[in-house]
Design a protein around this nucleic acid. Structure first.
Lengths: 402, 402
DNA sequence: CTAATTTGTAAACCGCCATGACGAAATAGT
DNA sequence: ACTATTTCGTCATGGCGGTTTACAAATTAG
């Protein structure tokens, strides 16, 4: 019974939330949902032993969750062991759905995911959004959302929330885009222009990508760095199974970590920021290519064809990334680094130089660098799943709806 | 009732702690302790309104805490308002005490702090520890601890735990010193060689310094970076009122963040690490001074005398620190940076260059840099307070003792 | 076919906080 | 002075939630 190390205190000094019996019930409902969601079909007894409550208590919790439409009884389990077989419980495929949306530089995408984690509807629209006004883009996105919601409802689900991934900095209110260089948006409140009727969350594309990795990855550790890039370079810091957001919500600005302090000037005011070496514009310039549509695809194609200029440009970008990541790894001691978003397509040419630099500069066992399995889909999936997660985390709030 | 953003989930998937009524009671006991501890003498009614429970419930909790010797009834409050005056409650000055210890490069220190946060006993021993064997150092420390414990007991307190601050990397088991370059210690388990009889915690000196800042500072935000240095340069990352430790417990290795990627080679394997510019050895060399005893004091004296070589060396170190911190600030978006430990004495000459570099390189409002008010005392105080904090966080575990 | 094992549920119980009522102790008003 | 009002602390009652205990149901082992 050693005193625990000093992690974030459950409730800091000053005002603190009371601990009432209702809260206890709510947390236990959540525990049941998480257990069933993570453990596949499970009997009440299995859930009870996993979360440490008695069978009787779990029975009561499960009853409530079934009445709310969040759990489903699948019927008796195939018996392999002695004793009465349990009745299999599974997360419902008919309950709430999470709607995820992504505003990309040259596409809009929306999807719906059910509690089981399955994508039940999807809608994509290609076309460059760079420099367009906010309103028409959001109008188009709203249309896509409505289409997906209709489809979802036809499938017997109801939308529990909308989460939008944006390539830019989002304030801690989870509604305002402070700066999105790829879109030329500044200080825009998306809340006013998106469909209401269910809760809205807006977050950075890198953050949602990291959450996808965290929740959907097979062996993703609870502490890692997720690096993502379109034009800027964003990172998401996952600590102890949660996102690190920073005071203003701007944590993860890897793009402006100094790589060479006397390097080229950066619009941010600094010199030699990572973005000056590994940002999309810098890489294109170094590769001797013009800016244009789908530049990342172009880079990948050229590199695959064996274009030496492009390969060298990507190697150099990898080196710069490695230097910046060395700092981040020293500071955060993560269990791994994941390359996601647009970077995943370029990984084959970035990785060698990146890993070499990182290994050389860090003492002890190397920090493993992997590539996201979701590629460009990560942020969209993460967004949709974040809504599902919110339901699992507090099933009571949506219980009345069904 | 918007869904909360996706912070660390109270209990990740898989195995999770059950939520029972006893746990509820324990958390509420903790809330009462924290409220009284933070709010000065408080009546039961005041506590109730602060933590959101009813007066009756608080009465019951307070009774238990008084029986355990953790709270004290001071008697009726001086009435200034209408109504019956409350009975003032205060944290007990006779209950458990936290024993803090520090192993420095050239001193050992131990102190005892009561629940009120007051230092009740103290014992220091000067003398260089660099290169000494582990056993004799710990034997001396044990003697100091025993002396402080005796004194504490004479004052009517009992030791609730021992926390030891070490200038080096500590594993997540909070017992093993993995690497302490200033002492030439490697992979030593302090648990075996220190007094048993109460719980032991070992942690990095920078971490404990940061906790002191967090808990004892007047206006310390819950998100900040605490930079500290003896020979190496360590930082502690405080996020959301808790320490970020990293996978292996090595988070905060600011000293090996690359500042100039092609700079001088570092023992860590990298090049141009911060330590090569702002580490004690590097600064002494740049200032044209020999290594020796109390080198930090020497630097401060010479700088105060106006020695231009020393001042330039410190300016350059400040610049390097500024570059490294730019990366950290971009990555973590903290509310502030605090210079502590040995750095606090050199702050006047480090700060200008550091702030200039940091401001220039970060967009938006500057991240404020301050100097710790505790100076070299921070880690010791933080260690002792960490034990006190553990009692406040879970009063039930120590309740039986009294 | 019986014994053993496991599951799910129901009834009684206990612990914890909420509610409401009350006496106690102060102030405010007449 | 005396009463009304306000606030504090406590007690009795009640509701809620998980535990304990008991038991029927369903399966395997012998």
């Amino acid at each position: 019974m050693t005193a625990p190390p000093h992690e974030a205190h459950p409730a800091g000094p000053g005002r603190a939330l009371p601990d009432t019996q209702q809260g206890m019930r709510r947390r236990n409902l959540s525990r049941v949902m998480h257990a069933v969601s993570a453990g596949g079909p499970l009997s009440r007894a299995a859930v009870a032993s996993r979360i440490g409550l008695t069978r009787a208590a779990v029975s009561s919790l499960v009853d409530e969750l079934i009445r709310s439409g969040l759990l489903q009884e699948l019927g008796p389990e195939r018996p392999g062991r002695v004793g009465r077989p349990g009745s299999a419980l599974a997360v419902s495929g008919q309950g709430p759905a999470g709607i995820g949306a992504e505003i990309g530089v040259d596409h809009l995408a929306v999807c719906a995911v059910d509690l089981r984690g399955e994508v039940r509807a999807r809608s994509v629209r290609h076309g460059a959004n760079r420099g367009r006004q906010v309103a028409p883009v959001l109008a188009e996105l709203t249309a896509l959302v409505r289409r997906v919601v209709r489809e979802t409802e036809r499938a017997g689900l109801w939308p529990a929330g909308l989460a939008v991934a944006v390539p830019g900095l989002v304030a801690r209110d989870a509604r305002t885009v402070v700066r999105a260089p790829n879109l030329d948006w500044r200080d825009t409140d998306l809340g006013a222009l998106l469909p209401s009727g269910f809760p809205l969350t807006v977050d950075n594309e890198a953050n949602f990508g990291a959450l996808a990795e965290l929740w959907l990855g097979e062996e993703t550790p609870p502490d890692f760095l997720h690096v993502s890039a379109e034009i800027g370079i964003g990172a998401a810091v996952v600590v102890d199974g949660g996102l690190l957001r920073g005071t203003r919500g701007f944590a993860g600005e890897l793009g402006h970590v100094p790589v060479r302090p006397e390097g080229p000037a950066c619009p941010c005011g600094g010199r030699g920021c990572l973005e000056q070496y590994a940002g999309e514009e810098a890489v294109l310039r170094a590769a001797g290519l013009e800016p244009g549509e789908d530049r990342v695809g172009l880079l990948a194609d050229r590199a695959a064809e064996g274009d030496e200029d492009v390969r060298r440009a990507l190697r150099d970008a990898g080196t710069a990334l490695g230097i910046a990541l060395t700092g981040a790894v020293n500071l955060l001691d993560p269990q791994g680094v994941v390359l996601g978003g647009a970077l995943s397509g370029l990984a084959p040419w970035l990785l060698p130089a990146l890993e070499q630099e990182l290994d050389r500069r860090t003492a002890g066992p190397a920090c493993p660098v992997t590539v996201s399995r979701f590629g460009p889909e990560g942020p969209l999936l993460g967004a949709a799943h974040s809504v599902v997660r919110a339901v699992l985390d507090d099933p009571a709030t949506v219980g009345e709806r069904a």
